[in-house]
């Protein structure tokens, strides 16, 4: 090798190393930059309202009072409904795909469930607003109001008129949206349970339910919790679908049938209309809260999944 080409090789080596490390740093900086920029953009709201920003239910752009309680409440309630629906269904799908379905059907059905994650969220929103919410309002909500609306503890959750849109509808749509994410992880970790454990259970005469409840779930517990956190992280930050079906109302109500607001939906609906600095800053402060909470939730998910990650090589 001649001297000049050798030197060129060394230069290429350094350039390549620097470029790739720079790109890796950029990923890190983008996340830091997002956090800092949201904190900086929201500083006016935080300094004006202080801690009261989190506890005030008033959201009045005309008088310049902004409290985040209603969007926070709406975000938490809809995400909770989503988890209540998505977690058992996802475990059921994972069980079906790993234990029950005939081998030839596993691939196509698995892909179909994964396609639920590929549908853009705005399509979920349109379907939710024009088809699913009216259907719920006509067929399901009257039944809920009639049969559960007067019961002692659950009653207040199901009071009101069957108007279709509201927290319940948004929660269900969110639940459907996060099913593919939770189910994919659950399927992968179920499939990664060492065959010897399963075979031992089978040899003892266990039924499928006993294998699931006493071998598979205990063995995969931390990864399943990680998958739930992953779904929660998605649900908290989901914007368009919720914006369509939540009803954009800054009211605090116990009833799940009432319209409400979420952090992401408030930002999506109001940011381009925000006409004062304080208004805009309050919306960015909301985004900061959302970012911090999803960061914590997703970090927990990642930590819980990392143990399984190593044995699998991959979970998503």
């Amino acid at each position: 090798m001649s001297d000049s080409s050798h030197r060129r090789g060394a230069g290429g080596e350094r350039l390549f190393g620097l470029t790739t490390a720079g790109a890796a740093w950029l990923v890190l900086l983008l996340l830091l930059g997002t956090a800092v920029s949201m904190a900086w953009g929201g500083r006016q709201a935080f300094s004006t309202f202080g801690f009261g920003f989190l506890t005030s239910r008033e959201w009045n752009p005309v008088e310049g009072h902004f409290g985040a309680l209603v969007p926070i409440y709406g975000t938490l309630v809809t995400s909770a409904i989503a988890l209540i629906i998505a977690v058992p269904v996802s475990v059921g799908i994972a069980l079906f795909l790993t234990e029950i379905a005939p081998r030839w059907a596993r691939g196509p059905i698995g892909i179909a469930i994964e396609l639920l994650a590929a549908i853009p969220s705005i399509i979920y929103g349109m379907w939710g607003l024009f088809v699913f919410a009216p259907w719920l309002g006509e067929h399901v909500q009257p039944w809920l109001i009639e049969h559960l609306g007067n019961t002692p503890i659950l009653g207040p959750l199901f009071e009101g008129a069957p108007i279709g849109i509201g927290m319940l509808t948004a929660g269900i749509v969110l639940g459907i949206m996060i099913i593919p994410f939770v189910a994919a992880v659950a399927r992968d970790v179920f499939a990664a349970v060492p065959p010897s454990l399963r075979e031992a259970a089978v040899a003892l005469g266990s039924t499928r339910w006993e294998i699931l409840s006493r071998v598979t779930l205990p063995y995969t517990r931390s990864a399943i919790v990680g998958a739930v956190f992953l779904g929660l992280g998605r649900a908290l930050g989901e914007t368009m679908a919720v914006t369509f079906v939540l009803g954009n109302a800054h009211d605090l109500s116990i009833s799940l049938l009432m319209p409400s607001n979420s952090i992401a939906a408030t930002i999506a609906n109001e940011f381009t209309e925000a006409d004062t600095d304080l208004y805009r800053s309050s919306l960015i402060a909301l985004a900061f809260l959302l970012f911090v909470v999803t960061f914590i939730v997703l970090s927990l998910a990642k930590l819980l999944l990392s143990r399984m990650d190593r044995s699998l090589g991959r979970t998503h």
Partner: peptide, 25 residues
Amino acid sequence: AIVRFVNDILLSAPSIVIGLFVYEL
């Protein structure tokens, strides 16, 4: 190790917050 962790979080981060970041920037 850190970037891999951060990248996975960025992968699931709320896209509306990313929109606001680019707005600010």
